[in-house]
Design a protein around this nucleic acid. Structure first.
Length: 563
RNA sequence: UGGGGCGUAGCCAAGUGGUAAGGCAGCGGGUUUUGAUCCCGCGAUCCCAGGUUCGAGUCCUGGCGCCCCAGCCA
C-alpha cells in the first residue's frame, strides 16, 4: 500500500500526460481540468476504473481538478439507482470530485439556446424526415449521403419548428434537429448529425420539463466547455467524433476551448466489459445482481473483497496507449494477491472438514496456542487459538495412498499442525462406502508450538480447527464467470458462461475468532486464499467469499502427472 | 471501394536515429512452521518488403493484418 503510493508519486509517463505537459509548457492551457462522465444507465466496472484513474490521476498530478459529470441525455435508459451507485463506486475507488458534481441536464437550457444559435447562423435545421429516411439518405461507408429536402429551409421556419418541438406539439420521432455540415463527408458523423430528438419521457432529474433532448454529441463537448474542462479524455470509439466535437465548439460561443484526446479501453480475458452485456447478465439472472462477486463491476469486486488499491495498482501497471488490448486476468489477480498479502490478517479455516481424533490427548482437555496474525509483520501481533482432543483438517491434506510428491498426512506419516504440535496418523476410519470419515492420530507433546526438541523435521505444515470450538460457516468459492478467454468471440457470449463459476461450501469450520470479522474485512485463510465476510452474513449464519486463492504450485505438480 | 485508428516476447508495455526497460504468465533453483510470501536465474531477426544513413523499432516508400464508424445510444 505504502509502496503503491510511493510509486504513484513518481512522475507518470504516457502519451496523454505528455500532451498535457506540452500544453502547459506551450501555454495552450494554464490549468488542467478533466472530468469523469458516466451515463447513469448501469453500474461502473473495472473498465471505468481505468478512465477514473486517468482523469482523477491527471488532475491531481497537475494540480488541477476532476469533475464527476453525469451524461444524462437519454431519459429512456437512465435511472436514479445508477446515479447513486456510481457516486458510491467512485468514492470507494478512492476519488473525490469535491463540489464539482455536474449533470449534462443542468445545461439543457443553455444547450437549447445554442441550438437556436446554430439555426440562426445556418448551421442547423429541423428535418421532417423519418428515422428510416434519414438512414437511407445517410449513404453508406463507401457512398456519400444525399441532402434532406428540408436541409435548406429558412432559419425562421426551423426556429419556429424547433420551438414547437420543445412545446410538445409533435410526437416522438416526428422531427429532429440536425447540424448542417457535409452529407458527402467520409466521416459519417459529419453527415448532418442529429443533435436533438423528441422523447416524451420523464427524465430522472428534469422530470417532465423537457420532451426534446440533446444527443451525446451536442451535449458532451458543450458541457465540457461550460465546466471549463481543458482535456476531455475518452475512449477510442469517439475518435471519429472529434471533428464534430471541434466543429460544434468552433460554431458556438462557448466560454472555453476543451480538447478531446482518446485512449484505448480496457479488455480482460474471461470477462465481459460492455454495459450492454453486463446489463443482460443481470436482467436475465445469470448472476444475482450488479454486485454479484463474479461481476467485473466495482460493486461486484467490492463485495468479492477486492481492495480498491489493487484495482488502482492494476490500472497503473497495464499502462495507457491507443492499442487494442486484451489483458490476462492473471495480471489483475496478481495485483489483488499482492495487496492482500500485505494487508490481510491470517486465520485458520477448514473448508472441507475431515475429523481427526487425537488418541493421546485427553478428551476433556483444552488449551490455547499462540498464533501470529501476520508472520511477516510482527506488529500485527498474535492471537490465541483453542486446541483439543478432536480437530478438523482439510480433506485434501490426507491421502490414504499418497503419490511420491505428496508431503501431507497419510497413514503412518507425521506432519506439523500449524502453531500447535506434530501429529502422526495411526489409522483411517472408513464408512460403508469406503470413504475416509475420520483419522485416528497421536500427537507429540514435546513439539508444542511446532518445533521438535530432537530436531526432527516434517515435510508439511497443515492448518486445523478445534472441533469443539469451531464456528460453522458457508464459504462461496468463485471462478471466472466465463469459460473462454474471449467470451462471444465465436457466437453468443452467453454460451461461454462458465457453469462452475460458483461453488458453495456449506459445511466449513472456522477458527472461533472469525466471528468478529467485519463485513468486507480481508482475511487470509492460511494455505487457502483471501476471504471476506459477505453481506449475506446474519446472526447464526456466517457467509464468507473467497476473493482469490493463494498461488497453488502443488496443483501444478499434480496436474503435470505427479498424481 | 470511404473515413478514423493500431501493429515491439504468450499477455501488457517502455523506447522520440546510437545498438531492444519493466510488469504479468511460463520454466528452473534457493529460503520457508502457509506447497504462500520472499530471493536468484532464463525469453525479441521490433508485421513484411524495399530505401535513406556510418548506424533504423525509431525517418521515407510500398504492402499486409487487426480494430472502430452507416442509433433520433453513449
Amino acid at each position: 500500500m505504502s509502496e503503491n503510493n510511493a510509486q504513484a508519486r513518481e512522475e507518470v509517463h504516457d502519451f496523454i500526460r505528455d500532451i498535457i505537459r506540452d500544453d502547459l509548457a506551450a501555454g495552450r492551457s494554464d490549468s488542467v481540468v478533466t472530468r469523469f462522465p458516466p451515463e447513469p444507465n448501469g453500474y461502473l466496472h473495472i473498465g471505468h476504473a481505468k478512465s477514473m484513474c486517468l482523469n482523477f490521476g491527471v488532475a491531481e498530478e497537475f494540480g488541477g481538478r476532476c469533475h464527476l459529470r453525469f451524461d444524462d441525455t437519454n431519459p429512456v435508459k437512465e435511472e436514479h439507482e445508477f446515479i447513486e451507485s456510481i457516486q458510491e463506486d467512485v468514492r470507494w475507488l478512492g476519488f473525490d470530485w469535491g463540489r464539482h458534481l455536474y449533470f449534462a441536464s443542468d445545461n439543457f437550457e443553455a444547450l437549447y439556446d445554442w441550438a437556436c444559435h446554430l439555426i440562426r447562423n445556418g448551421h442547423a435545421y429541423v428535418d421532417d424526415l423519418s428515422a428510416e429516411e434519414i438512414r437511407t439518405h445517410r449513404g453508406s461507408l463507401t457512398e456519400p449521403g444525399k441532402n434532406s429536402p428540408y436541409r435548406d429551409r429558412a432559419a425562421d421556419e426551423s426556429l419556429d419548428l424547433f420551438a414547437r418541438m420543445r412545446a410538445g406539439e409533435f410526437s416522438d420521432g416526428a422531427r429532429v434537429l440536425r447540424a448542417k455540415i457535409d452529407m458527402a463527408s467520409g466521416n459519417i458523423n459529419l453527415r448532418d448529425p442529429v443533435i436533438y430528438r423528441i422523447l416524451h419521457a420523464a427524465h430522472p432529474r428534469t422530470g417532465d420539463a423537457w420532451c426534446i433532448y440533446p444527443t451525446y454529441d451536442f451535449a458532451h463537448g458543450q458541457s465540457d466547455a461550460i465546466e471549463g474542462v481543458t482535456h476531455s479524455l475518452c475512449t477510442l470509439e469517439f475518435e471519429d467524433h472529434r471533428p464534430l466535437y471541434d466543429w460544434l465548439i468552433d460554431n458556438l460561443p462557448t466560454p472555453g476551448r476543451p480538447r478531446q484526446y482518446e485512449f484505448s479501453r480496457l479488455n480482460l480475458t474471461y470477462t465481459v466489459l460492455s454495459k450492454r452485456r453486463l446489463t443482460q447478465l443481470v436482467a436475465q439472472r445469470h448472476v444475482t445482481g450488479w454486485d454479484d462477486p463474479r461481476m467485473p463491476s466495482l460493486a461486484g469486486l467490492r463485495r468479492r473483497g477486492v481492495p480498491p488499491a489493487a484495482i488502482r495498482d492494476f490500472v497503473r501497471r497495464v499502462g495507457l496507449t491507443k492499442s487494442d488490448n486484451l489483458i490476462e486476468v492473471a495480471a489483475l489477480e496478481h495485483c489483488i494477491r499482492e495487496e492482500l498479502n500485505q494487508t490481510a490478517a491470517r486465520r485458520m479455516a477448514v473448508l472441507r472438514p475431515l475429523k481427526v481424533v487425537i488418541e493421546n490427548y485427553a478428551e476433556d482437555q483444552t488449551e490455547e496456542l499462540e498464533a501470529a496474525n501476520h508472520p511477516a509483520d510482527p506488529a500485527a501481533g498474535t492471537r490465541m487459538v483453542p486446541f483439543g482432543h478432536e480437530l478438523y483438517i482439510e480433506q485434501a491434506d490426507f491421502m490414504e495412498d499418497p503419490p511420491k510428491k505428496f508431503f501431507r498426512l497419510a497413514p503412518g506419516r507425521e506432519v506439523r499442525l500449524r502453531y500447535a504440535y506434530f501429529l502422526t496418523c495411526r489409522e483411517a476410519v472408513k464408512n460403508d462406502a469406503g470413504e475416509v470419515v475420520e483419522l485416528r492420530c497421536t500427537y507429540d507433546p514435546a513439539t508444542r508450538g511446532g518445533n521438535a526438541p530432537d530436531g526432527r523435521k516434517v515435510k508439511a505444515t497443515i492448518h486445523w480447527v478445534s472441533a469443539a470450538h469451531a464456528m460453522p460457516a458457508e464459504v462461496r468459492l468463485y471462478d471466472h464467470l466465463f469459460a473462454r478467454p474471449n467470451p462471444g468471440a465465436e457466437g453468443d457470449f452467453l454460451d461461454d458462461i462458465n457453469p462452475d463459476s460458483l461453488n458453495v461450501l456449506e459445511d466449513c469450520r472456522l477458527e472461533p475468532g472469525l466471528a468478529d470479522a467485519k463485513p468486507g474485512e480481508a482475511i487470509q485463510f492460511e494455505r487457502e486464499g483471501y476471504f471476506c465476510p459477505d453481506p449475506d452474513t446474519a446472526p447464526g449464519r456466517a457467509v464468507f467469499n473467497r476473493t482469490i486463492g493463494l498461488r497453488d504450485t502443488w496443483a501444478k505438480v499434480r496436474a503435470k502427472g505427479g498424481k
